[in-house]
Design a protein around this nucleic acid. Structure first.
Length: 804
DNA sequence: GTAGAAGGCGAG
DNA sequence: TCGCCTTCTACA
């Protein structure tokens, strides 16, 4: 009786979104476990694909011809019981394929790459074709395609003279280091010296080295660096049985050249201690309570996290901490490495795929007890979790905006239930959703109302830019901001300038006819990039040269408009030539480590001004910053998104917190065309509570979260009509099954209707209680399989963060 | 996603 | 009717 493995295969379609039964060859019988990756034949051609074993059983209901597992790719499961069950939960709640969910939980190197080759079976074929085959009688599919051999080869295939073979490539490679071990005793070294006589000076050198090495082992790399010995000499030594060269596995350590100064726990302020107590209680009682830690910027939330983690470690458990990608600065890492040393694993996008894999394995083996990282770190294979912390919990980046569209917060809550551990959601400006849950006592609210250094929050001055225009000041800098900048430069204090880039970019327009250069694939204008001297499309990546004459009227009055960081920097240097500026935006931070380098330079006082987009609003903590300027506070306010006010309030509060964190008092200038807007006024007063109340009122009136749940359905097709028609059909299916009080907004074409030559239509569902809705939506996806194979896309996003 | 079968269509 | 191309369908 053969055992059966249920396998989720790597074919992301609706029809294959279920386990398939495979026979387990006897050779794998004892070793195969749930959660391992396997190589299985799938489909008519016996094409090989990767899959995950989700179940092992002794019988099958399948009545067809059973296929067998070709290969087992892991020695131990890469997904444990928790992850398998989390995968099921994710697939059910995010409308994503199971395979996509499983792959998302693992480092990307675990996702297989596939290779197709053509192999010669018989010698007796046309020599004109045979000459293309290499010594091993194989050529790659791509090569055959390039040389237009596919047609004749397919014919040969039917005669079975060639065969198509599939290779599943496992990209997960461990890094190896060659080590050297001395096999000689002191007397033997002496004898070896004597037997060499006067010949072989390098050999003598090697023997001398071995004498100093003694019983130790060292790496080949180190020897060749420290001595004049080469690997050739070492090889000779190995031949003579003087030494043994062997390989060991090493971790790629992204922090290998860094020292972390050990830090001790600070004495808590009384309010920190009050907040910490209930958290520690939940930790010691293994209770999955969720805390909302609301603390003003600089109130020392981090210290509360650190001491919670310390207690967790003391109890022999591990801790998981999420921070937004852009807040994952060296400063942040230092806090954790400084306190917990080697026990900390850091996962972030700056790591190479290999480094990520190594950190993952370190965690999986239980060598890292504290994991710090961005969104996807919520899947870190930590056993025995004692606490999960999500810092800056309001950040939209915790929601993945591609499939699987999961929210890290939801995953955290699920895992906390599994591990019976508390969750801490920390923020100075909690999301309305979380704050409202705290109101309803679903979460426990803890507040830190004063800064740890007892300093007052900085003064915020709102500047009405409409008045500036009246004063004939046409620059992006108000007179008062210019003056304050000069003042700080003179005093050798530092300045942070924030450019709110959301919904803003520079474009090229003709002054004669008003022509704006559009993207040929999308209904959007191209953005000017001065560094590459090109026009780029931010949606599809299309790139072309900057026009010098207007393509429409052939006029020469083509000019740049809009506000990019580069343009602001130029303007700033014209106004205040003595300023030294570090600009931080997508362009200057693209290279690995560039972000860190710029911040270090600014921290060392190499520039007066740090100019940047959203990415500078978080985490940076430099004592010398005394002025924060927000160039354009309200560009996000105009967007048709009900979270626009919330985002603006959060951003202004965050960036204000950068000023005056140490001895010097800080000051904030906010430039806006909407000075009376409540988000700006209440940010000026640092008044979260009133903002929360006011915003809740508006959400209640508008029927938005947290009063309603939302689902965004999007259809897209190359033909506009097909996308619109499908959206209509979907609405017709939904309408009869929803309650009358549930609201459907749509169908509407997307704000940018055409992207990459596809047209988009969307509908938003707002509901309070629709127990059947998810089932209906899953059915819609199931019934759309045919059309989806023909170029239609349907995506469903539960609780979307962006509506445009 | 994709191989192989089925269906469709023009040339002979 | 053959051969080529497109569309369909099922994958264990």
């Amino acid at each position: 009786m053969v055992s059966i493995a249920k396998v989720i295969v790597d074919v992301p379609t609706m029809q294959t979104n279920r386990p398939y039964d495979y026979g387990i060859p006897e050779a794998f019988e004892s070793q195969l476990k749930r959660g391992m990756r396997v190589e299985v034949p799938f489909g008519k051609g016996g094409r090989k694909v990767q899959g995950f074993v989700v179940e092992i059983q002794h019988s099958t209901d399948y009545e067809g011809i059973l296929k067998f597992i070709d290969n087992v790719m892991d020695l131990t499961p890469v997904l444990n019981e928790e992850m398998l069950s989390l995968g099921t939960y994710m697939a059910a709640t995010t409308f994503a394929f199971q395979i996509t969910c499983l792959q998302t939980m693992l480092p990307s190197v675990m996702k297989a790459k596939y290779e197709k080759k053509i192999r010669l079976v018989s010698e007796s074929i046309d020599p004109d074709i045979q000459k293309f085959f290499k010594d091993n009688l194989e050529i790659s599919w791509e090569e055959a395609e390039e040389k237009e051999l596919l047609v004749p080869l397919m014919k040969l295939k039917q005669q079975q003279l060639v065969e198509v073979i599939y290779v599943v490539k496992n990209q997960a490679r461990t890094k190896k280091k060659r080590m050297v071990k001395n096999l000689l005793t002191f007397t033997e070294i002496k004898e070896a010296h004597d037997s060499l006589g006067k010949r072989g000076p390098k050999q003598h050198q090697l023997l001398d080295f071995l004498e100093t090495l003694g019983e130790e082992t060292t790496s080949v790399e180190e020897i060749t660096q420290l001595t004049e010995l080469t690997s050739a000499v070492l090889r000779e030594g190995a031949n003579k049985k003087w030494i043994e060269i062997f390989e060991t596995e090493v971790y790629r350590d992204p922090f290998k050249d860094k020292e972390f100064a050990q830090t001790e726990a600070f004495t808590l302020t009384s309010s920190q201690a009050v907040a910490l107590a209930p958290i520690l209680k939940a930790v010691t009682e293994d209770r999955n309570e969720t805390f909302l830690l609301k603390g003003v910027t600089g109130s020392g939330k981090t210290e509360v996290y650190l001491q919670t983690i310390a207690e967790t470690l003391k109890r022999g458990k591990s801790a998981l901490m999420l921070v937004p990608e852009i807040a994952l600065t060296p400063q942040m890492v230092n806090h954790f490495k400084g306190r917990f040393g080697e026990a900390v694993a850091v996962l972030h996008s700056g790591l190479s795929v290999g480094e990520k894999y190594d950190e993952w394995r370190k965690i999986e083996r239980g060598e890292a007890k504290v994991v710090v990282g961005a969104r996807s770190s919520i899947f870190a294979p930590v056993e025995n979790i004692g606490v999960i912390i999500i810092d800056e919990e309001h950040e939209a980046t915790y929601k993945q905006d591609e499939s699987p569209r999961y929210h890290a917060r939801d995953i955290a809550l699920w895992r906390s239930e599994y591990h019976h551990c508390p969750v801490i959601l920390g923020s100075a400006t909690p999301s309305l959703e979380s704050r409202a849950r705290a109101q309803k006592k679903v979460y426990t609210l803890l507040e830190l109302t004063e800064r740890a250094n007892k300093k007052a929050l900085p003064e915020v001055e709102v500047v009405d830019m409409r008045e500036e225009v009246k004063k004939q000041n046409r620059s992006s800098f108000s007179l008062v901001l210019q003056e304050k900048i000069r003042e700080r430069i003179a005093k050798k204090e530092q300045i942070v300038l924030l450019l709110n880039r959301r919904g803003y970019s520079s474009f090229v327009m003709c002054r004669d006819c008003g022509f704006v250069l559009p993207c040929p694939n999308c209904d959007i204008s191209l953005t000017l990039h001065m560094d590459t001297k090109t026009m780029k499309c931010h949606y599809c990546g299309h790139e072309e040269g900057i026009p010098h004459t207007c393509p429409s009227c052939k006029g020469h009055k083509i000019r740049y408009y809009g506000t990019g960081t580069q343009k602001i920097e130029e303007e700033l240097l014209t106004l205040i030539p003595e300023a030294s500026v570090i600009r931080m935006d997508v362009d200057t931070t693209r290279k690995k480590g560039a972000h860190e380098k710029l911040l270090t330079a600014f921290g060392n006082g190499e520039a007066d001004i740090l100019l940047g987009t959203q990415m500078i609003a978080k985490g940076l903590d430099f004592p010398n910053i005394t002025l924060v300027g927000v160039i354009n506070a309200d560009t996000a306010l105009g967007l048709p998104d009900f979270r626009a006010s919330e985002r603006t309030f959060q951003l202004l509060t965050q960036v204000s917190g950068r000023a005056g964190r140490a001895e010097l008092t800080g000051e904030v200038i906010v430039q806006t065309y909407n000075p009376e807007h409540y988000a700006i006024q209440l940010a000026k007063e640092h008044d979260y509570d009133h903002f929360y109340q006011h915003e809740m009122l508006l959400r209640h009136r508008g029927g938005y979260p947290p009063y309603y749940f939302t689902i965004l359905i999007t259809t897209s097709h190359e033909e506009e009509l097909k996308a619109a028609k499908k959206m209509q059909d979907i609405i017709q299916v939904i309408k009869p099954v929803i309650k009358p009080e549930t609201i459907l907004l749509g169908p509407t074409p997307k704000a940018v209707a055409r992207v990459n030559n596809r047209y988009y239509y969307q509908t938003i569902i707002k509901y309070k209680n629709e127990p059947q809705l998810f089932t209906t939506l899953h059915e819609i996806l199931n019934q759309s399989q045919r059309e989806m194979a023909k170029g239609l896309q349907v995506s469903i996003d539960s609780e979307p963060m962006h509506f445009i």
